[in-house]
Design a protein around this nucleic acid. Structure first.
Lengths: 179, 179
DNA sequence: CTGCCTGCAAACTCTTTGCACGAAT
DNA sequence: ATTCGTGCAAAGAGTTTGCAGGCAG
């Protein structure tokens, strides 16, 4: 049931004409096109894996020719990008929220979180939508969204003592940069 | 597929012989049987709906003939009760964790969260376990747990302007009691 | 020129923790 | 008598927000 295809490498969309799309969206919503917002946008859509607000801040500050970006602005811009469906919010219950560029139609995805390497894998799970409507209607509710997450342990780590996925992402950042 | 039975009223186990069970568990783990732990235990298992640490604190303090219970002790006792499988932790991504007495074999449950009345409904979802193992094995992982949550809106509120479920639980508490 | 945006820092929420006293075994 | 548990208060972590000045339109 339900082809569970694993998206190992989720290629982040670069910034050829994507920039224009975001500019257009901002204007349509009556929001101003600022240097900071564009830098945060560029940093966000170029991510290949899940990222946090803190990581995004670092990358936004690394965007060339951009003005200084503050943490507050990142936090204020993230909702704009998720509302525009550019990003997807992924809450794995660790205190900090993760985000992921929304590539195409992978809206219905489940996450498999490796508790050993902190990695987040995404799996298409189209049946989630069906399930959501089914159970919601029984309660007189209209589904808005659904999330399915599996927490798991690494077999290789248990057997061989080391995790094959070299600390790609997920490796928790040590501290906070600018306070 | 998968009998999706809704547990409308989850009757909280009272405290006839349940107390002894917890006392026994504490001793087995080399933990001391204190007045506070027992009060928190009683407060927890008598809950009929999902509750937070803060709510539990209030109820524990209301337990007759018990010594004063501090917030810290509640936070220190919650893990003990979840490890003993007396409680189940439910994270709906709102910042605060919810807990639920574990009644019988309802380990594999999904949650439907009403975004209007903040209520949490539980639905049995046995297929979750199967799903977890299936996708985990494809990644070389061993599943530990899985969560499935549906966020939804109240039809009655949309149509009639009011939610039929009178603010049972979920109605967010105004402030914090003891500081 | 007007008002939205930004940066700064403080505030906030939930949870965890160090320490000294007090109680269970 | 030990040692673990408790209460207090402070510390944390992540995120939000009030305010004054700055930039987009």
């Amino acid at each position: 049931m339900t082809g569970a295809a694993v998206f190992e490498e989720n290629v982040g969309v670069s910034t050829p004409q994507a920039r224009e799309t975001f500019e257009k969206y901002l204007r349509k919503r009556g929001l101003r096109v600022t240097d900071q917002r564009m830098a945060i946008f560029e940093a966000a859509v170029s991510q290949k894996e899940h990222f946090t607000a803190e990581t995004l801040l670092d990358h936004a500050r690394a965007v060339e020719k951009s003005r200084y970006v503050s943490r507050a602005t990142v936090y204020r811009t993230l909702p704009v990008m998720t509302e525009s469906a550019l990003l997807r919010e992924v809450d794995i219950g660790t205190g900090e929220k993760f985000y992921m560029p929304n590539v195409g139609a992978n809206a219905q995805v489940a996450q498999v979180v490796c508790l050993d390497c902190d990695r987040i894998f995404e799996i298409s799970a189209p049946f989630m939508e069906w399930y959501g409507s089914t159970v919601s209607s029984k309660l007189g509710l209209t589904p808005e969204s659904q999330r399915l997450q599996v927490s798991a342990r690494c077999n290789a780590l248990r057997d061989a003592g080391s995790c094959p996925r070299r600390g790609g992402n997920g490796t928790r950042k040590p501290a906070r940069a600018g306070r």
